[in-house]
Write a protein that binds this DNA or RNA. Sequence first.
RNA 1: GCGGGGGUGCCCGAGCUGGCCAAAGGGGACAGGCUUAGGACCUGUUGGCGUAGGCCUACCAGGGUUCGAAUCCCUGCCCCCGCACCA
Length: 937
Amino acid sequence: MDIERKWRDRWRDAGIFQADPDDREKIFLTVAYPYPSGAMHIGHGRTYTVPDVYARFKRMQGYNVLFPMAWHVTGAPVIGIARRIQRKDPWTLKIYREVHRVPEDELERFSDPEYIVEYFSREYRSVMEDMGYSIDWRREFKTTDPTYSRFIQWQIRKLRDLGLVRKGAHPVKYCPECENPVGDHDLLEGEGVAINQLTLLKFKLGDSYLVAATFRPETIYGATNLWLNPDEDYVRVETGGEEWIISRAAVDNLSHQKLDLKVSGDVNPGDLIGMCVENPVTGQEHPILPASFVDPEYATGVVFSVPAHAPADFIALEDLRTDHELLERYGLEDVVADIEPVNVIAVDGYGEFPAAEVIEKFGVRNQEDPRLEDATGELYKIEHARGVMSSHIPVYGGMKVSEAREVIADELKDQGLADEMYEFAERPVICRCGGRCVVRVMEDQWFMKYSDDAWKDLAHRCLDGMKIIPEEVRANFEYYIDWLNDWACSRRIGLGTRLPWDERWIIEPLTDSTIYMAYYTIAHRLREMDAGEMDDEFFDAIFLDDSGTFEDLREEFRYWYPLDWRLSAKDLIGNHLTFHIFHHSAIFPESGWPRGAVVFGMGLLEGNKMSSSKGNVILLRDAIEKHGADVVRLFLMSSAEPWQDFDWRESEVIGTRRRIEWFREFGERVSGILDGRPVLSEVTPAEPESFIGRWMMGQLNQRIREATRALESFQTRKAVQEALYLLKKDVDHYLKRVEGRVDDEVKSVLANVLHAWIRLMAPFIPYTAEEMWERYGGEGFVAEAPWPDFSDDAESRDVQVAEEMVQNTVRDIQEIMKILGSTPERVHIYTSPKWKWDVLRVAAEVGKLDMGSIMGRVSAEGIHDNMKEVAEFVRRIIRDLGKSEVTVIDEYSVLMDASDYIESEVGARVVIHSKPDYDPENKAVNAVPLKPAIYLE
RNA sequence: GCGGGGGUGCCCGAGCUGGCCAAAGGGGACAGGCUUAGGACCUGUUGGCGUAGGCCUACCAGGGUUCGAAUCCCUGCCCCCGCACCA
């Protein structure tokens, strides 16, 4: 670790990652600013290492690279955390002590949310520096800084002036005990539970309404009766100028959604049973019937019955018909006898009463049968997906259920015949404070109008001009731009910036983080200024106008904008990344729109999802201490491409560590071969004459080229494969091929390899590379050294083919020896006769794999007299080679050049024949181009 | 349900622009060498068969196109991610 500290100090002292405008071409990239509510884990490590590798690579290519960082402290989770710590919640304390490793004296201060984010911001920065990230820290800020708040307020006023902000209501999970909205982290039970919207249908009874909630308002045309639970309490309530009858248990929920709701009296449900209500749509009279299955806590405690399409209603009616005691108690014999199901939805595969059929299909016997739930689920799904309103339904007959549902609900609401409410998808939902949560509708909420068509058009145009990596996720962006609806952009609690025109509200995290990239360009300059002076004209002058005021700030912004790359997690495409596009396209002219985005996958730990709350996580600091920053970096960059999920496996991390050690040893080995350390600043290009020397330099060029291309498109895994693993394989092979030879050519080749290789590895393992660069006589920082040169031309194919032939020949010999089970004294190798090469050329020229055509040409050119041999060879071409292009080489001279190597590999004398002058077992005829014949004796 | 991504050899994971692909690379396992207290390092093997470099089988399953398919086409099965107050 001393090496790591040494280079961190030197980089910092030299200020080499600080970027200011100059004559160079620029690259500006940003990655999500972290929400510092806990310690960094290895998943964060990958997120922040990818941009660092790219930034280092581009600097070495000569670009002026800006890679900044800040802290997104906006939001409510730290409020909840602070509350829980204040309350001494044992689980929360345990998580912060044991998972996040917060010292006890610090933990005592965690009842202050501002302190939590300050603590973890420091912690994050420290770990980021340990990782060697080449960040320009001068531009560091946090989202509660007054200057940043002024920037966000400018932004949101701009959007309102453009008509892209509106007011409305919004449902949230709410704890009445805390008197605040709660997030999933705040829940003891019910984490991840969704909020469903239901339509309330008003069935008139006298001057009141029995209000029944449903997901399926289109089925009201088939209603036959209402269900009340006679064993539960019901009340009259007043809301919206009407009197409703609902269950008493429903009052708690509903009063958080209808804020004028008041209880005005009790109702005995038994008194209502047998009475009739009026269907708000058809005008028909429906009887009220008793049903113990009605849950008073769910929605309103009033249910309407559609026996044709709801298995539970169908079977409840059947059960009621046979329950004579109940019928007699309420005098319902004649009423129930007259009830017939009414079909309202036609769906393929089912008849008039699908509910009855699905009950039979599932073998449901009664209301208590557990199969009833499955039967219901299946029918609801099919009717929604494939159902069509029956033809007798006025107006909506023939319409798809999936379309009719929303249309009918909206129509009924417009006419005052329906209302809406929200319910949790599952129960119970319990706050960590112990309180039972409800769905509450927050009034006067503010929304971003992502539904605005013109804005969507702008967003699409912006996206069209962007590079998306990987390209296949562009479809996700296109989809989400169209899919997004209005977004609640303000909150009642949390850290952040207050809405400028209504200070009760705080701008929420996904809305205050859409154009902060622009803020980075000048953040270090604002530090010396007073936030109070930053009005809208101030920010206009920097980001939009050419008024000439604040010209220096304007010029710095203009140098760095547009943003070249935005990097973020792929699960944020549907919100943050798409919002980023929306907001840039609304605020900035087209010249300021972002140029590209790269998305990340998740991190796994030994095949399992990581989770801080479950303690299944490796802290980045721990990984650095155990393995060193370079090992962590290299592993994260080599185990998967950025957009894929990666899996932290300790055994492979150790393998990566061994590979870095090997790389360092390679430098020492080259020093040994060169009789002293090379002086990299004096290395001149190698110009080898031997086949193998040319092969090595060709491979080096190829690896540099492929790694460079990979990095250009953020393929960090492919880049490491080429730059380290495949180049190592090439170098291993070269060393083996030249074993025992120490001449000027070998020395020159190895010095060139080392010179290029250290630079090639520098973005991935900067500490190791700096140390080796210095040790072997490199000038200055390797972080500032030029990226290795390479030629775009393809390598000499003949050199590669020649080396492959040598390897294959060795392998063939060894294979034969293995099969024969003995070692020969002498190995004879026979190269292919000229006529076979000529036949190959003809086959390529003919252009199709046709025996007759090839034979005809061979004959016409008089290539070989023995047409039988030719036919056999052509058959083999067709079978083995097809239309592949074949590179012509001088097999004999290649093999002669490598004969020492072949002998040492097979442990026998090797004789190479260009003609079969000694061939006791007639093996020479087996030779085909690039696959010499072999005879062992 | 909507949108997106995937299924490869013991595990992870390349390959998909049809042709040395029994399939890159890494890990694990087995064997040997070196050094030994160990670790590290090096070499070989890692589907079956084979006394001549070869043959057979294999890339979720079935079918098709092709001289030739892990790769292209069709059908089916299974898995992962996102889908609105975490950010």
